[in-house]
Amino acid sequence: MTARKARPAETDVDDAPAYPGRNEGARRVLVIACGALAREVLALGLDGIDVTCLPASLHNRPDRIPERMRATIRANRVAYDEIMCLYGDCGTGGALDEVLREEGVTRIAGAHCYAFYGGESAFAALAEEEPGTFYLTDFLARHFETLVIKGLGLDRFPNLRDAYFGAYRRVVHLAQFDDPETAAKARAAADRLGLAFERRFTGLDGIAAFLTDAGRDGRKTMAGTWPT
Protein backbone atom coordinates (compact mmCIF):
# COMPACT_ATOMS: atom_id res chain seq x y z
CA MET A 1 0.00 0.00 0.00
CA THR A 2 1.11 3.55 -0.61
CA ALA A 3 0.58 6.37 1.87
CA ARG A 4 -1.46 9.34 0.77
CA LYS A 5 -0.14 12.80 1.49
CA ALA A 6 -3.53 14.43 1.98
CA ARG A 7 -5.83 13.23 4.73
CA PRO A 8 -9.39 12.29 3.66
CA ALA A 9 -12.29 14.51 4.62
CA GLU A 10 -13.74 14.12 8.10
CA THR A 11 -16.78 11.89 8.64
CA ASP A 12 -19.54 12.58 11.13
CA VAL A 13 -20.53 10.15 13.88
CA ASP A 14 -23.72 9.11 12.06
CA ASP A 15 -22.15 8.75 8.60
CA ALA A 16 -21.88 5.34 6.93
CA PRO A 17 -19.63 6.19 3.97
CA ALA A 18 -18.37 3.80 1.31
CA TYR A 19 -15.14 4.22 -0.66
CA PRO A 20 -14.40 2.16 -3.78
CA GLY A 21 -10.81 1.06 -4.39
CA ARG A 22 -8.94 2.97 -7.08
CA ASN A 23 -7.54 -0.05 -8.94
CA GLU A 24 -9.31 -3.14 -10.25
CA GLY A 25 -7.61 -6.37 -9.28
CA ALA A 26 -8.23 -10.06 -9.80
CA ARG A 27 -9.51 -10.40 -6.24
CA ARG A 28 -12.35 -8.35 -4.91
CA VAL A 29 -11.77 -7.34 -1.29
CA LEU A 30 -14.10 -5.38 1.00
CA VAL A 31 -13.14 -3.92 4.36
CA ILE A 32 -16.07 -3.20 6.68
CA ALA A 33 -14.81 -0.60 9.14
CA CYS A 34 -16.12 1.46 12.01
CA GLY A 35 -16.87 4.98 10.84
CA ALA A 36 -14.47 6.23 13.51
CA LEU A 37 -11.65 4.65 11.47
CA ALA A 38 -12.65 5.83 7.98
CA ARG A 39 -10.31 8.81 7.78
CA GLU A 40 -7.39 6.80 9.06
CA VAL A 41 -8.01 3.79 6.79
CA LEU A 42 -8.20 5.96 3.69
CA ALA A 43 -4.99 7.76 4.64
CA LEU A 44 -3.13 4.48 4.07
CA GLY A 45 -4.01 4.42 0.38
CA LEU A 46 -6.03 1.25 -0.09
CA ASP A 47 -5.46 0.57 -3.78
CA GLY A 48 -7.86 -2.04 -5.08
CA ILE A 49 -9.69 -2.47 -1.76
CA ASP A 50 -13.24 -1.24 -1.23
CA VAL A 51 -14.16 0.22 2.16
CA THR A 52 -17.61 0.57 3.66
CA CYS A 53 -18.31 1.88 7.15
CA LEU A 54 -20.87 1.47 9.87
CA PRO A 55 -21.75 4.67 11.79
CA ALA A 56 -19.40 5.54 14.64
CA SER A 57 -22.45 6.44 16.72
CA LEU A 58 -23.10 2.69 17.14
CA HIS A 59 -20.49 2.81 19.92
CA ASN A 60 -23.22 4.32 22.08
CA ARG A 61 -25.39 1.26 21.30
CA PRO A 62 -22.90 -1.63 20.98
CA ASP A 63 -25.70 -4.19 21.15
CA ARG A 64 -26.63 -3.12 17.61
CA ILE A 65 -23.17 -3.60 16.11
CA PRO A 66 -23.24 -7.40 15.54
CA GLU A 67 -26.44 -7.52 13.50
CA ARG A 68 -25.52 -4.40 11.54
CA MET A 69 -22.27 -6.13 10.71
CA ARG A 70 -24.07 -9.32 9.70
CA ALA A 71 -26.46 -7.40 7.45
CA THR A 72 -23.58 -5.56 5.78
CA ILE A 73 -21.64 -8.78 5.20
CA ARG A 74 -24.63 -10.53 3.66
CA ALA A 75 -25.51 -7.54 1.49
CA ASN A 76 -22.00 -7.60 -0.02
CA ARG A 77 -21.09 -11.29 -0.01
CA VAL A 78 -21.91 -12.04 -3.64
CA ALA A 79 -19.84 -9.11 -4.91
CA TYR A 80 -16.58 -9.95 -3.09
CA ASP A 81 -14.08 -12.76 -2.78
CA GLU A 82 -13.01 -11.65 0.68
CA ILE A 83 -14.52 -9.48 3.40
CA MET A 84 -12.47 -8.21 6.33
CA CYS A 85 -13.70 -6.55 9.53
CA LEU A 86 -11.91 -3.51 10.95
CA TYR A 87 -13.59 -3.35 14.36
CA GLY A 88 -12.67 -4.22 17.89
CA ASP A 89 -15.11 -6.09 20.08
CA CYS A 90 -16.22 -2.58 21.04
CA GLY A 91 -18.38 -3.55 23.99
CA THR A 92 -20.37 -6.31 22.26
CA GLY A 93 -19.27 -8.90 24.81
CA GLY A 94 -18.11 -11.37 22.18
CA ALA A 95 -21.30 -11.13 20.11
CA LEU A 96 -19.48 -9.50 17.19
CA ASP A 97 -16.90 -12.29 17.08
CA GLU A 98 -19.69 -14.86 17.07
CA VAL A 99 -21.31 -13.19 14.06
CA LEU A 100 -17.97 -13.03 12.25
CA ARG A 101 -17.27 -16.68 12.99
CA GLU A 102 -20.67 -17.65 11.60
CA GLU A 103 -20.16 -15.49 8.51
CA GLY A 104 -16.55 -16.54 7.88
CA VAL A 105 -15.02 -13.06 8.17
CA THR A 106 -11.63 -12.16 9.68
CA ARG A 107 -11.38 -9.37 12.27
CA ILE A 108 -8.34 -7.37 13.31
CA ALA A 109 -6.97 -8.55 16.67
CA GLY A 110 -7.80 -6.42 19.71
CA ALA A 111 -10.71 -5.66 21.97
CA HIS A 112 -10.90 -2.05 20.80
CA CYS A 113 -9.20 0.49 18.56
CA TYR A 114 -6.92 1.63 21.38
CA ALA A 115 -5.29 -1.81 21.35
CA PHE A 116 -4.76 -2.08 17.62
CA TYR A 117 -3.64 1.54 17.28
CA GLY A 118 -1.14 1.43 20.13
CA GLY A 119 -0.33 -2.29 20.00
CA GLU A 120 -1.82 -4.77 22.45
CA SER A 121 1.27 -5.09 24.66
CA ALA A 122 1.86 -1.32 24.76
CA PHE A 123 -1.79 -0.70 25.59
CA ALA A 124 -1.69 -3.32 28.35
CA ALA A 125 1.33 -1.54 29.82
CA LEU A 126 -0.53 1.78 29.76
CA ALA A 127 -3.50 0.25 31.54
CA GLU A 128 -1.24 -1.36 34.12
CA GLU A 129 0.60 1.92 34.69
CA GLU A 130 -2.64 3.79 35.48
CA PRO A 131 -5.93 1.85 35.48
CA GLY A 132 -7.83 5.12 35.84
CA THR A 133 -7.14 6.24 32.26
CA PHE A 134 -9.66 7.56 29.76
CA TYR A 135 -8.40 7.12 26.20
CA LEU A 136 -8.94 9.33 23.18
CA THR A 137 -8.18 8.56 19.56
CA ASP A 138 -8.00 11.36 17.03
CA PHE A 139 -11.62 10.69 16.02
CA LEU A 140 -12.86 10.74 19.61
CA ALA A 141 -10.92 13.93 20.32
CA ARG A 142 -12.48 15.62 17.29
CA HIS A 143 -15.98 14.44 18.24
CA PHE A 144 -15.66 14.64 22.02
CA GLU A 145 -18.61 17.00 22.40
CA THR A 146 -20.97 14.77 20.42
CA LEU A 147 -19.87 11.33 21.60
CA VAL A 148 -18.91 12.00 25.22
CA ILE A 149 -20.47 15.21 26.49
CA LYS A 150 -23.81 14.92 24.67
CA GLY A 151 -23.67 11.14 24.39
CA LEU A 152 -23.47 10.78 28.18
CA GLY A 153 -25.88 13.64 28.84
CA LEU A 154 -23.23 15.80 30.51
CA ASP A 155 -24.40 18.83 28.56
CA ARG A 156 -27.75 18.59 30.37
CA PHE A 157 -26.61 17.06 33.65
CA PRO A 158 -23.04 18.22 34.35
CA ASN A 159 -23.29 16.85 37.89
CA LEU A 160 -22.99 13.37 36.37
CA ARG A 161 -19.32 14.08 35.67
CA ASP A 162 -18.24 12.48 38.96
CA ALA A 163 -20.46 9.46 38.42
CA TYR A 164 -18.85 8.79 35.05
CA PHE A 165 -15.31 10.01 35.58
CA GLY A 166 -14.72 10.13 39.32
CA ALA A 167 -12.47 7.08 39.20
CA TYR A 168 -10.32 8.42 36.35
CA ARG A 169 -6.99 10.15 36.90
CA ARG A 170 -5.80 11.01 33.41
CA VAL A 171 -6.67 11.28 29.72
CA VAL A 172 -4.25 9.67 27.24
CA HIS A 173 -4.55 10.81 23.64
CA LEU A 174 -3.43 7.99 21.34
CA ALA A 175 -2.68 10.11 18.30
CA GLN A 176 -2.77 8.76 14.75
CA PHE A 177 -1.52 11.96 13.08
CA ASP A 178 0.77 14.80 14.10
CA ASP A 179 -2.04 17.34 14.00
CA PRO A 180 -1.82 20.34 16.38
CA GLU A 181 -5.54 21.09 16.07
CA THR A 182 -6.57 17.58 17.10
CA ALA A 183 -4.00 17.57 19.89
CA ALA A 184 -5.44 20.85 21.21
CA LYS A 185 -8.94 19.35 21.19
CA ALA A 186 -7.70 16.33 23.13
CA ARG A 187 -6.09 18.54 25.75
CA ALA A 188 -9.27 20.63 25.99
CA ALA A 189 -11.25 17.43 26.56
CA ALA A 190 -8.97 16.49 29.45
CA ASP A 191 -9.33 19.97 30.91
CA ARG A 192 -13.10 19.76 30.64
CA LEU A 193 -13.07 16.50 32.59
CA GLY A 194 -10.61 17.89 35.12
CA LEU A 195 -8.05 15.17 34.40
CA ALA A 196 -4.31 15.11 33.72
CA PHE A 197 -3.34 14.88 30.06
CA GLU A 198 -0.79 12.82 28.13
CA ARG A 199 -0.28 12.31 24.41
CA ARG A 200 1.21 9.17 22.86
CA PHE A 201 1.76 8.99 19.09
CA THR A 202 0.69 5.65 17.58
CA GLY A 203 0.54 6.26 13.84
CA LEU A 204 -1.35 3.75 11.69
CA ASP A 205 0.97 0.74 11.73
CA GLY A 206 -1.51 -1.52 13.52
CA ILE A 207 -4.20 -1.02 10.89
CA ALA A 208 -1.67 -1.13 8.05
CA ALA A 209 -0.31 -4.50 9.16
CA PHE A 210 -3.79 -6.03 9.11
CA LEU A 211 -4.85 -4.54 5.79
CA THR A 212 -1.58 -5.28 4.02
CA ASP A 213 -2.63 -8.93 4.15
CA ALA A 214 -5.90 -8.20 2.33
CA GLY A 215 -6.26 -10.45 -0.67
CA ARG A 216 -3.33 -12.73 0.12
CA ASP A 217 -4.04 -16.41 -0.41
CA GLY A 218 -3.33 -17.30 3.22
CA ARG A 219 -6.21 -15.17 4.47
CA LYS A 220 -8.82 -15.35 1.77
CA THR A 221 -12.38 -16.52 2.18
CA MET A 222 -13.50 -17.27 -1.34
CA ALA A 223 -17.09 -16.62 -2.37
CA GLY A 224 -17.53 -20.31 -3.16
CA THR A 225 -16.78 -21.30 0.43
CA TRP A 226 -18.87 -18.74 2.33
CA PRO A 227 -20.81 -20.31 5.22
CA THR A 228 -24.40 -21.26 4.47
Rank of each mutant, 00 (worst) to 15 (best):
D89P: 06
Q176K: 10
I73N: 00
G25H: 09
Y168L: 13
M69E: 00
A223P: 05
R216Q: 15
G94Y: 03
L140H: 11
A190Y: 09
E102C: 14
G118S: 11
L46K: 03
F197M: 06
G110M: 07
N76C: 04
K185F: 02
G45Q: 11
A36S: 13
L147C: 00
N159D: 14
E120A: 09
Y114R: 01
I149Q: 09
G48W: 04
Y87K: 00
Y114N: 01
V41P: 01
L195R: 00
A124M: 07
G104E: 11
G166E: 02
V99A: 00
E103K: 11
E40I: 14
T146F: 05
R187C: 12
V13N: 01
L211E: 00
A16P: 07
A26D: 15
A188M: 07
G35S: 05
P17L: 15
A196K: 13
S121A: 13
A188V: 03
R169Y: 06
R61K: 12
G48M: 04
V172M: 06
T2H: 03
E102F: 10
D205T: 12
M69Q: 03
G153Y: 00
F165W: 10
W226S: 14
F144G: 01
P158F: 09
G25D: 15
L195Y: 12
G48V: 04
L147T: 09
E128V: 03
A79V: 05
R200P: 10
G110Y: 04
Y80D: 08
R68H: 15
K220A: 15
L174V: 04
A189Q: 09
A186S: 10
T11E: 02
E181V: 15
V51Q: 02
G88N: 07
M1I: 14
L126Y: 08
I65C: 14
A122S: 08
D15V: 13
T146P: 03
I32Q: 03
P131H: 09
F177H: 11
S57T: 04
G153P: 00
K5Y: 11
C90L: 06
V105H: 02
D213Y: 04
E128N: 07
H143W: 02
Y135Q: 04
R61S: 09
L54P: 06
L42F: 10
A56T: 13
P8V: 07
T52L: 13
R27W: 05
E129R: 10
L37M: 11
M1W: 12
V105A: 07
T228E: 14
L154Q: 04
